[in-house]
């Protein structure tokens, strides 16, 4: 009797699935808080079915065979979604190793007497499933990296809010260092908001920028010039005395840009440009 993994898998699919699930459910790495048992079952079933479908005596030893593309695909999806849901690498790894355990159990049951054959088959199985595990890890890390990248985008979005402070006047407080990729985000957000709100004045407040060197100044000048091309005026405010000093020492020419010491004076200037005046209402005459 020569029972092989391939036959075994095809014949005992249901049994295998049950024992694998049993292992998962009793395992300490079970995360029913992240995923319901039904979902887990569906996921595992899909993988076992695909594997049993695809595996043959020929391709079992060729772990890189394109035959396995579908299995890889399923593994990637599982792994990617687990990464996003917040499973630990350990939990995801144990999931695949659990399948290996289950198949090994099955092998042991079905090949009780022939230890040589058991060894050969186990070895094939090891190769195959170790490769699966590697793929799972790779995609798991990829999934996590994507989360990080998305967070990066979110941070750069959050760090450049464009606020409409008055009808036709936008303010953009810049906090932190202004590098070229950040400048791109700032410019894009600002210009888009100018279009969306039809604002003709933008105030760029740099009180939160730790230092202005010639590169940062260049970025600021670019932003101002781009704003002007759109047909809006740009005021730079929040210039601290030490920034004024370095700007002059570095020989940076800001003379074509309207600069103000504070956001308040920039706003006042903007009101002037819009021919608006702010005055105290003298309603309560009785007090006077």
């Amino acid at each position: 009797m020569a029972t092989t993994i391939t036959e075994l898998l095809k014949k005992n699919k249901a049994q295998l699935l049950d024992s694998w699930l049993q292992k998962q459910l009793s395992s300490e790495s079970l995360r029913d808080d992240l995923m319901t048992n039904d979902e887990l079952r569906a996921q595992s079933e899909e993988l076992v079915n695909a594997l049993a479908e695809i595996i043959t005596e020929e391709n079992i030893s060729q772990v890189d065979s394109t035959d396995y593309d579908e299995v890889f695909e399923i593994l990637s999806t599982i792994s990617m979604s687990r990464a996003r849901q917040g499973f630990t690498p350990r939990e995801t790894g144990l999931y695949i190793y659990g399948l290996k355990e289950a198949i090994l159990d099955l092998l042991q049951q079905q090949i009780p007497n022939d230890s040589m054959q058991l060894f050969t088959e186990s070895r094939k199985l090891n190769q195959l499933l170790d490769n699966f595990a590697v793929i799972t890890f790779e995609t798991f890390i990829k999934g996590r990296e994507e989360v990080i990248l998305r967070q990066n985008d979110e941070i750069s979005d959050i760090s450049t809010p464009v606020i409409q402070i008055w009808d036709g006047i936008l303010a953009l407080p810049i906090i932190g260092t202004l590098d070229s990729s950040r400048t791109q985000v700032v410019m894009e957000n600002l210009l888009q908001k100018i279009v969306d709100t039809g604002s003709s004045i933008a105030i760029l407040d740099i009180s939160g920028v730790p230092a202005v060197d010639s590169l940062v100044a260049q970025h600021l000048i670019k932003t101002v010039s781009a704003t002007r091309l759109m047909g809006a005026d740009c005021i730079i405010s929040g210039i601290r005395p030490e920034i004024a000093q370095t700007v002059v020492h570095l020989g940076i020419d800001l003379s074509n840009i309207i600069t103000k010491a504070s956001l308040a004076s920039a706003l006042k200037h903007a009101f002037g440009m819009h021919k608006l005046t702010v005055k105290r209402a003298d309603t309560d005459k009785s007090i006077r």
């Binding site: 410019m187 894009e188 210009l191 010039s225 781009a226 704003t227 091309l229 759109m230 047909g231």
Partner: peptide
């Protein structure tokens, strides 16, 4: 007066060096 320049066009022109 040039009116209605798209944001992407404005950014590109500045990067190109044309203000």
């Amino acid at each position: 007066v040039v009116v209605g320049m798209q944001p992407a066009v404005a950014i590109t022109l500045i990067e190109l060096g044309l203000s």
